[in-house]
Design a binder for these strands. Structure first.
Lengths: 146, 146
DNA sequence: CGCCACCGTCAACCAGATTGACCGGCTCTT
DNA sequence: AAGAGCCGGTCAATCTGGTTGACGGTGGCG
């Protein structure tokens, strides 16, 4: 009956896993985690930080969009904006100590969910899934290279 | 470098395909198509229509959320709300003639995108992708039964 | 009848992201 | 050295796609 279409199925899978990651993070002591934070913590340099524009480009979103994420993470005390010594226009988004712990846990949580998926699907199907997704995501939505 | 995580990859693939469907619909003469319309046109009964609540349940969203979609589709002339003869509380969301054409084209567009994916990925990988997605979507995000 | 469940709706709100405008600092060319 | 124009971050407005909460009218049952 339901007979979902492929885009919808992809979306639901994404949401399911995202929710799972957030729940896991909640258990690990970060109750204010949200799926959108991933665009930052998967791309930020953990030691020295990363410029807003670079974060945005890596996450393939607008800098304004990334700014909202950074704003929130900053008010929560996970990152700070420090002036870039090499360019007075720029600021470096840098993790606080708490932010580093958050990012570490978040990456672990993501890895755990991925590991569970790999275990449940089996190695081969997981590999196929991953490569198929890369093709689908890249085919229509991506510029050739960065 | 990019090293995306699985939830993000799923999301990006979903968006890429969704965009593709909308673009295809645009070419087919429905320039106001949007990805969100799929929650309706994949679930509505094409002849007699379907109750709002049923649509919402099938699409696994709130009735208020579905109402927004129905509202928009109604102002665009794709559906009408007619009273349900069997239950004075209920209304049936019924396709107009134009709505039927829209739904037909939309389903074709989705099918075309899926066919392209199947062709590019190959039959076997496509099957694996689909079943893996069902497992992922179902495992964490679904209630046991409806 | 009285009660509760259910349908559609109004209202408020939130998350995530976009486009447009802008200011100030950088850099390249002349 | 001086513009001219590009680039980094920000403010503001807007949009999509949902959510929860409350409520009026109807149905169904004891």
């Amino acid at each position: 009956m339901a007979e979902p279409d492929l885009p919808r199925l992809l979306l639901e899978a994404s949401r399911a896993l995202g929710t799972e990651v957030v729940a896991s993070l909640d258990e690990r002591g970060f109750p204010d985690a949200r799926p959108g934070h991933a665009v930052l913590f998967m791309h930020i340099d953990r030691r020295w930080g990363t410029r807003l524009t670079d974060l945005a480009r890596r996450a393939r979103m607008t800098k304004q969009g990334m700014m909202l994420v950074v704003d929130e993470l900053e008010t929560r005390g996970y990152v700070r904006r420090v002036p870039d010594p090499e360019d007075a226009r720029a600021k470096v988004v840098r993790l606080t100590a708490r932010g580093r712990r958050y990012v570490a846990e978040a990456r672990r949580a993501v890895a755990a969910v991925e590991a569970r998926a790999r275990r449940e699907l089996g190695e081969r199907r997981y590999e196929v899934l991953w490569s198929a997704l890369e093709e689908l995501a890249g085919a229509a939505g991506d510029s050739p290279e960065t």
